[in-house]
Amino acid sequence: MSVGIFGGAFDPPHAGHVELARRGIEHFALDRLLVRVVEHPGHKPVATAPETRLRLARLAFASLPGAEIELDPFARTVDSLEALALIDPVFLVGADEFAALPTWKEPDRVLDLARLGVATRPGIDDRRVEAVLTTLARPERVSFFPIEPLPVSSSEIRARAAAGEPIDAFVPPEVAREISRLGLYRPVETGGAGGMLGRDG
């Protein structure tokens, strides 16, 4: 059985996340995809509680075949992979995250524990990707697959929600409805969710 892993803060999960996961499932013929919502990311602050981000992720990825969405208590990828102890899984990342691989905790150990499936899109600097490959002990453990460019980020969605602007074009409909229902990402003075401080890739 082929297993993939896709982790992140998902604050909130958006259309780009879903497209990356969908294409990863198709490209690597994955039977299961473990979507891991990182409870306390080590590399970025988060605006919402882990349980809320888990709820949003379950709504976002519900339509993907074989997707299993759970919280990840580990802030670092290598620690999460060690705990999962899967047989040669594919860890899905975007090309931007891959470019930061040398800053991850024990990147060569990550490649011992999992293959990397790197999503590429037009506009990514190939020189940055090639430079990372030259630093790895096992570059053959890295595979690339194309995705359609979707110019969207979680930070932009949070900013739009905070300004009261529509976000329907950037997140799955169920996610947009839940963000509106919960009043997420609105300024604190208007009764929105309180901040909560937050992983390498």
Rank of each mutant, 00 (worst) to 15 (best):
A162T: 03
D200L: 10
E97C: 13
S80A: 15
A137R: 15
V188R: 15
P173H: 04
G194T: 11
V175H: 03
G191D: 08
E97Q: 15
E140P: 00
E68I: 12
G198S: 15
D96R: 05
P89T: 08
R121Q: 12
P166Q: 07
E174Q: 15
G192C: 05
L59W: 00
E156K: 08
F145N: 02
L92R: 05
A99N: 06
P146D: 09
P146M: 06
A75M: 06
D125Q: 09
S155H: 04
L133P: 05
F61I: 09
P122A: 10
D112P: 04
L182A: 04
A114F: 08
I124D: 14
R76L: 15
T135N: 02
L71F: 07
V142T: 01
P151S: 01
V90E: 08
W104E: 01
I167A: 02
V78M: 07
A119F: 00
I69K: 06
P89K: 05
P187K: 01
T77G: 01
L81E: 03
L113H: 00
V142N: 03
G183C: 05
L81C: 02
L84K: 09
S63M: 08
V175I: 06
A131I: 06
A176S: 14
D112A: 13
A114V: 10
E178Y: 10
D112V: 12
P139G: 02
D125N: 14
W104V: 00
S153D: 03
R109A: 10
R127Q: 13
G183L: 04
P139R: 04
F91W: 13
G123E: 01
A162Y: 02
A100D: 13
A162V: 10
R127Y: 04
A62P: 00
R199G: 13
A99I: 10
A85I: 08
A137H: 11
D96T: 01
L184V: 09
A62I: 04
D108T: 03
P122F: 08
P73H: 08
A100N: 11
R121Y: 01
F144Y: 12
G201T: 10
G94D: 10
V188T: 14
D79A: 12
L64V: 02
E130C: 10
E174S: 13
R186D: 09
D168F: 06
F170W: 14
L182T: 05
L71Q: 09
A193V: 12
G191V: 07
L136V: 05
F98R: 02
A114L: 10
P173W: 07
D96F: 02
K105D: 11
V78K: 00
D88V: 09
A159N: 10
A67K: 05
I87K: 15
I167N: 00
A162L: 06
L92N: 04
T103N: 09
D126M: 13
I147V: 15
L150Y: 04
T103V: 01
